[in-house]
Write a protein that binds this DNA or RNA. Sequence first.
DNA 1: CGTGAGATTGAAGCATTTCAATCATGGTGG
DNA 2: CCACCATGATTGAAATGCTTCAATCTCACG
Lengths: 229, 229
Amino acid sequence: MADKKIVQTACPTCKTVYSGIYTELPSQDVDMLSAHQSCELYKKGSSFFHEGSRPNGIFFIHKGKVKIYKHGDGREQIIKIAKEGELLGYRAILADEQFPVSAKTLEDCHLCFIPKHIFLEALLGSPAFSQKILKEACRELDLMTGVLTHMAQKTVHERIVHTLLELSDMYGENPINLKREDMAGLVGTATETLIRFLSQLKEAGWIEIQGRKIRVVNKVEIKKFAKIY
Amino acid sequence: MADKKIVQTACPTCKTVYSGIYTELPSQDVDMLSAHQSCELYKKGSSFFHEGSRPNGIFFIHKGKVKIYKHGDGREQIIKIAKEGELLGYRAILADEQFPVSAKTLEDCHLCFIPKHIFLEALLGSPAFSQKILKEACRELDLMTGVLTHMAQKTVHERIVHTLLELSDMYGENPINLKREDMAGLVGTATETLIRFLSQLKEAGWIEIQGRKIRVVNKVEIKKFAKIY
DNA sequence: CGTGAGATTGAAGCATTTCAATCATGGTGG
DNA sequence: CCACCATGATTGAAATGCTTCAATCTCACG
């Protein structure tokens, strides 16, 4: 644990600043990873890995949002929306399994690809990196535990509100900009059911809808609303 | 509802029988861990950690089955049934968070407790152990992804059959021995719904029921059955 | 400014829950 | 060791929440 210097550099290929898993990492580790990564622009709607295929590297999201989903019978279940700073695909590599999910960009994205052997090398070579990844995995695991319970026990309306609030945080100042179908997939319900409840929320004045764009106006009241209707 | 910890002596077999996370680990790591662990008998029904509390160590299941669950409003959601060889509580420590779940023994169990600082020491000191834990976390993560999708997309009947088959594997030659309420919590449905479908499966001759005990007789047919009824 | 994908609404049908009531069981004290 | 009692299992019936299908509307984009 010699070099503890914190780094705040930009990706050599796409010029965006490192964030997420890259923060608080010794500079030598960052250098090692960035030397072998290729950063590219992925157009909105690009699939960059598929459920069932073998991973040959990991992806780091420099910029943009992507959906992580599983194909069910018929509709797809969206596991989560990942955004800048997140690392994707490391689990499948470490568990030595096929991708359990697919990934597709929701908007134009900058994604860095790091080949499998480089990633594994960095992992073995750097305790700091290894710890970081481990912590990340545990955090995700805790998160998913909560999602599972929520999914199993809350009504659709409560889940919609919950998702709405999460997305609102994720989009920050911008309005939520997602296909209804995707949002429904995230909630785990039928598209029509989602739309119907959104209409009610709009009527009540807690959200604003402009085309596909949604803006949460009253975060406090919206929660109570979910329990009543 | 009081915890019923009994015996205080170190488990005699702990140092000789390695399973689960302990396998394929350098002997020095195993020695290091087992030197500081205390193995105790926990009576059926003992709670040994609680949602929301801070972990001060991890538990290794030497023998027996425990349920890992979350309190919802009203009924509890069972995240999983853990059995011998599994390590519990490491995620909360590594993610540096409170326990996201509670744990209770389903039968008399031998549990080894390893203090937090010993665990962290072992982790930092042994790349092999660290890798092992990381891999375990990733495996669990993949698993939970599948559970989530299943939960969101399959009908209750399909989920019941799925759970039944998993439990059947877990119990091996023995009949499944779980409260209906717990099984329902695992499936994520109402107890009555579970019972009703179990009755149908019994009528059809695919399972046998003796009191609370359930034995799966025909694993193949049972799956088709789930889709029809 | 047309066209197709996506959003919305209505209505019918069904799966699941909930409430209520009864039955079985297994653990406990007499 | 047995009777008892409490906990858990089972069944019925009513209520409801959600999905599905079908039809119409609207928006974004070439």
